[in-house]
Structure formats: C-alpha cells, structure tokens
C-alpha cells in the first residue's frame, strides 16, 4: 500500500528525560482538514512542528510527506517549502512591508521575479481581505490582520499542506472570528490542513477529523460528532466537559 499523503509512524520526541510524544501514528489524506485538540502540554504543537522538522524527532520515527521523508539534509528546505506554517505569534518580518513579507519566499525559494511575486501576493492579500494594507509594516496592523498576512505569506508558497499552531490563541477575542473565517474559506477550497486549536466551534464545524491528544499520545480520533457528541474515552469527555461548559 502506498503511504498516505502525510504518513507518520511511531513519532517520538523527548526533551531530556521528559517525553513529549510517545510514538504517534497518524495518516492524513490529501484535502483533509484535521483539527488537533487537547490540554496544554499534551504534545499537539510538538506533533505538527515535527511535520516540517522545526522540532527534531527521535531516530526511528518516520514522517513522510507526499512520498518524501522529512529528515535533516539537503532535501529539508524543499520539504519545508511544501509545508505552510502559521504560528501563534504570527512571526511576520517586522522590517518588511506586508507585501514584501508575502513576496520574500516565492522570490528566494521558488525563483519568481518581483512582478510575478507581487501579482501573487496582491491576489492572496485580497483573498484574506487585507489588500488595502499591502504597503504598511506589520507593526501597524491589528493582531487579526497580522495573522491573516501570515496565512497569505504561507499560501504564497503554494504549499501541499498548511499547519496552524494555535493561530488564534494570541488574538484579542474580537479578532478571532476574522482569522477563523479565512481558515474556513481555505478548508472549503480543498487545502490540506492540520490545525492545533482551542476553538472547539471551529473544529466541530470545519474538521473532517478531530484528534484528541493527552500526555503525548493520541487518545481518540474521529469525526467531529464522534468526538464532541459521543466520545468513548473518559479523558476526552473530561477535557471537552471542562472547555465546553465555561
């Protein structure tokens, strides 16, 4: 059997004596939207940071993206270029305008000329609803706007998969909606997405599959209704009870 689009086997990660991931197995299909939920410290951010090797995993673990093993070496930059990532803290480049933030990687990594890159960047900025801010610096934008720029910046590489690491956790509550709206549009357009989130409403509405993690293990996975309405594991029910009833 050919490995799936994202193929993760026995993914283990230790920090000194602390084990963050105890051998995760996960397969994600092309076009699938997977939401990863769980308490803090459950390893969900570590899991997605291993997919583009921002976090180095233990020897013997396997991560394969569309047939290419993710590992140190010459091919790593190529693999990373295929994986878009959106961070909790945006991580926009403060010395570049919004437009230049989105243009940089397509020019440097994909070899686009400035005109092509600008065309693509303006298109994407329009798609995330901030075409009017193209010439401003990130520091002048609200958190919600900055995160939408970060999404456009990742999309500009035309990645095979988009990883979201708690994209709304650093936002003021009134800005969460605008970012989730953009992510909803992406999900509908068929982009493969892995989203670490605390937004249970979003996960229920948008995810094809929800994964609940705790203590560095996948405790339970299933469709949103399987997880949110009929969780089999007590740990899942306790967690959902705690986050949904407050």
């Amino acid at each position: 059997m050919a490995p799936s689009f994202i193929h993760i086997r026995d993914l283990r990660k230790r920090y000194g004596s602390y084990t963050a991931l105890h051998g995760i197995d996960l397969d994600i299909a092309e076009g699938e939207v997977v939401c990863v939920i769980g308490p803090s410290g459950s390893g969900k951010s570590t899991l997605i940071r291993c997919i583009n090797l921002l976090e180095e995993f233990e020897p013997g673990s396997t991560v394969i993206l569309d047939g290419t093993p993710v590992k140190r070496g010459r091919a790593l930059e190529k693999v990373r270029a295929e994986v878009g990532m959106v961070f909790q803290s945006f991580n926009l480049f403060p010395h570049l305008t919004v437009l230049r933030n989105v243009m940089l990687a397509p020019m440097r990594v994909r070899g686009l000329d400035a005109r092509q890159a600008e065309g693509r960047a303006r298109e994407l900025l329009a798609r995330v609803g901030i075409e009017g801010q193209a010439d401003k610096y990130p520091g002048k934008l609200s958190g919600g706007q900055q995160q939408r720029v970060a999404i456009a910046r990742a999309l500009a590489m035309e990645p095979k998969v988009m990883l979201f690491d708690e994209p709304t956790s650093a936002l003021d509550p009134e800005m969460v909606g605008e970012v989730l709206d953009v992510m909803r549009l992406l999900a509908r357009s068929g982009v493969t997405m892995v989203v670490v989130t605390h937004e249970m409403g979003f996960a229920r509405q948008v995810a094809d599959r929800v994964i609940f993690m705790d203590g560095g293990r996948v405790v339970e996975e299933g469709t949103p209704s399987q997880i949110f309405d009929a969780a089999r594991e007590e740990r899942t029910r306790n967690f959902l009870g705690a986050v949904l009833n407050h």
Partner: peptide
C-alpha cells in the same frame, strides 16, 4: 526565535535567512 522559525518554515536557505531576515 520566531523569526528564524518562520524563515525555516518557508524553506529559506540559511544564507537567505541571514541576509533577508
């Protein structure tokens, strides 16, 4: 650190990470 991570996640080479970011 986030600046380094964002650059690496975009696939920038170590040289471009230094020179551009």
């Amino acid at each position: 650190l986030g600046q380094f991570e964002a650059s690496r996640a975009l696939g920038l080479s170590p040289r471009h990470l230094m020179v551009d970011v």
